[in-house]
Design a protein around this nucleic acid. Structure first.
Lengths: 154, 154
DNA sequence: GCATAATACTTGCATATGCAAGCAATATGA
DNA sequence: TCATATTGCTTGCATATGCAAGTATTATGC
């Protein structure tokens, strides 16, 4: 007789593997980013979002949605980033409620350096031991998970 | 002319999509778990690890490695879980340094309930809009990312 | 046009987590 | 054997983050 638990289905296995493999990669990245660039993975993602935004800026609420964090977290993440000059506050002339976060030239430089590290770490995990067609398969499948999400950076 | 950035390679795109899709699913799970079961995603994973361990228990350092968190985090996560009776402390007679964390009967019940929620959420993301062969492709590819890691729960 | 609602943001408080230092127990090496 | 090193765990401190309440600004409905 076969005992089936709630986790014995393909969907659950995929969800578990997704979370665990992401956790593992994030842990690698986290160490590299803090050691090499002095930024966190979340700060990296914040800069990535800004870099791809129209006018290189977003209101705080929009960043919060895209990053799956609360508005207060964005407020508090931005403060030190403003201090070191990678982002700057811009107010909307038409609606004073909006306080845009904009990436600066220094921010783009920092981002570019961090992207190099990101690529290198991604290379360790994928490039060196995966075939191109496997990478294309995986990226197509993962794309289906984030297409439709405003958060997608790719 | 084509401008290439550091992120324009397949490995980086896969890494980005992996992190972002996992973030999105984790955010869904987090809300469900705290609302329905009163536990965090990390507490769920802790119980999952214990449930699959020999004798249903692990030393704290082993849990820390598998969960990609620090030893102090495990210490502090376990305290309230012990209070509500889902885990219990067991000392090793041969080496008093080891303080095992063991899952209890109540813990297995709680885990089982949470697994049902996990499956349901995984179903929303995968089952309802993916073909079986796509699910099998994805699980095989993700497996390559965690095989070799002691953390793998699948 | 004005009271009320909605929106964007900030802040107080509570929880979560990592790092470094400290403690206790075991292992190692002379 | 016994001083030293290593290992597992805990704790103090700093940082990160969510929720709820508060503030300021704009939108809505009468």
């Amino acid at each position: 007789m076969i005992y089936k638990t709630a986790m014995d289905n393909l969907s659950s296995i995929n969800a578990l593997r997704l979370l665990q493999s992401a956790d593992e990669f994030r842990a690698r990245l986290s160490g590299e980013f803090s050691a090499v660039h002095g930024i966190s993975v979340n700060e990296f993602f914040l800069l990535m979002h800004l870099d791809q935004a129209t006018n290189n800026r977003f209101p705080r609420v929009e960043l919060a949605k895209r990053m799956h964090v609360s508005a207060s977290t964005v407020t508090r993440m931005v403060a030190p980033m403003e201090k070191i000059g990678v982002v700057i506050r811009e107010v909307d002339a038409r609606d004073a409620r909006f306080a845009f976060v904009a990436i600066t030239k220094a921010g783009r430089t920092k981002l570019s350096e961090a992207q190099t590290t990101f690529s290198k770490q991604a290379g360790y995990v994928f490039q060196d031991r995966w075939e191109t067609d496997e990478l294309e398969q995986l990226s197509a499948l993962l794309y289906r998970l984030i297409v439709g999400s405003s958060a997608n950076l790719t």
